[in-house]
């Protein structure tokens, strides 16, 4: 497991990490999620020892490694742009860490063969990185990091430089790999979908601070603030309230709501802009009376019932109000 306590890091006037504490359970796959400049990469690189903290401690598996150089931390690191050793073959790349440790030849060979098989590069071991596709290079980089049996595996936007299709495939593959290998893994990403898809635990960072940390469902269902809510999943804004688009109900007549519901919160009026039908989900772009744009996601069935088209006037209201103890001011409805 990894424990970061009170980490601070400054670049001149810029605060990259502002008193960050984080605990990552052994064997988990944790995603550090945030916009660029949020400090997520700095945090990961500090765990790796590629950045030195201005204050705070890093503990890996009970050892304080704050002042230990990266080569002695027992980590595996995967870089966004692969950091492939261009002058070495795929095989030599993967074997590098073991060669440095002067392991016996046959052990190196066995280990490398095994890893190349796992990452699906068995037939390409004689190639040079330049002869591989982006996805293959990243799998090679992953095998290289895993070869030294790291205590923790750190991935810095590992799929960021790949196109959408390859990215989705690779993260599924990473999840399966993690379920097999069970090494404590930390993944940095700015892609909420990626984080929701692979991680057991997500830490959302913003401006050098951790806004919220928890299981993906927790963060999605019970965000502690607007930032987390709008960063994880899409949102619609009704007056001062942020709501998930699929939590909006549309009706042609106010009477469709019960008097109690209307007493609790009055539906507001909006004009339909565009109706986009994507399979079961239908997205309705709306313009409310204040001139604000918002989108609602309704089911195909509701869409058929309402038969909405551009220019129609409808009423819109959140499906339910959140229980008071889970709400914070901006979400109170």
């Amino acid at each position: 497991m990894i424990d970061v306590t009170d980490a601070r890091k400054y670049y001149g006037d810029f605060t990259a990490l502002d008193d960050v504490s984080l605990s990552i359970p052994a064997g988990s796959l944790t995603a550090l999620l945030g916009p660029s400049g949020s400090g997520k990469s700095t945090l990961l690189r500090s765990i790796a020892g590629l950045e030195t903290l201005d204050a705070g401690r890093v503990v890996i598996s009970g050892d304080d490694v704050t002042d230990v150089p990266p080569q002695k931390r027992g980590i595996g690191f995967v870089f966004q742009h692969y950091a492939a050793f261009k002058h070495m073959t795929v095989r030599d790349n993967v074997a590098f860490g073991l060669t440095i440790r002067k392991r016996p030849k046959n052990e190196i060979n066995r280990k490398v063969d095994e890893l190349l098989e796992i990452v699906g590069l068995g037939g390409l071991q004689k190639r040079y990185p330049a002869q591989l596709s982006g996805g293959q290079r990243q799998r090679m980089a992953l095998a290289r990091a895993l070869a030294v049996d790291p205590q923790v595996l750190l991935l810095d936007e590992p799929f960021g430089a790949l196109d959408a299709k390859v990215r989705a495939d690779l993260r599924q593959w990473l999840r399966r790999l993690h379920d097999e290998v069970h090494v404590t893994t930390v993944l940095v990403t700015h892609d909420q979908e990626e984080a929701l898809d692979v991680a057991d635990q997500i830490a959302v960072l913003n401006k050098g601070r951790i806004e919220q940390i928890g299981a993906p469902e927790d963060l999605y269902e019970r965000p502690v603030n607007d930032f987390v809510m709008s960063f994880l999943g899409s949102v619609a804004k009704i007056g001062p309230h942020l709501v998930r688009p699929h939590d909006l109900r549309l009706e042609r007549a106010l009477e469709r709501w019960s008097p109690e519901e209307r007493a609790e919160m009055e539906p507001s009026k909006a004009t339909v802009g565009r109706v986009v039908r994507l399979g079961f989900e239908v997205r309705v772009d709306l313009l409310d009376e204040a001139g604000e744009r918002l989108s609602a996601e309704i089911t195909r069935r509701d869409d058929e019932r309402l038969a909405l088209k551009a220019g129609d006037v409808v009423y819109v209201r959140p499906v339910r109000a959140l229980p008071p103890e889970e709400a914070f001011p901006a979400l109170a409805m």
């Binding site: 931390r73 690191f77 950091a83 050793f85 590098f96 440095i100």
Partner: peptide, 21 residues
């Protein structure tokens, strides 16, 4: 310096990193 950092995370000391990478 990506490659050099990668070498460091794989256990190479600065001297080894210089010669090998």
């Amino acid at each position: 310096n990506d490659q050099e950092q990668a070498a460091a995370t794989l256990g190479a000391n600065p001297w080894q990193t210089f010669w090998r990478i």
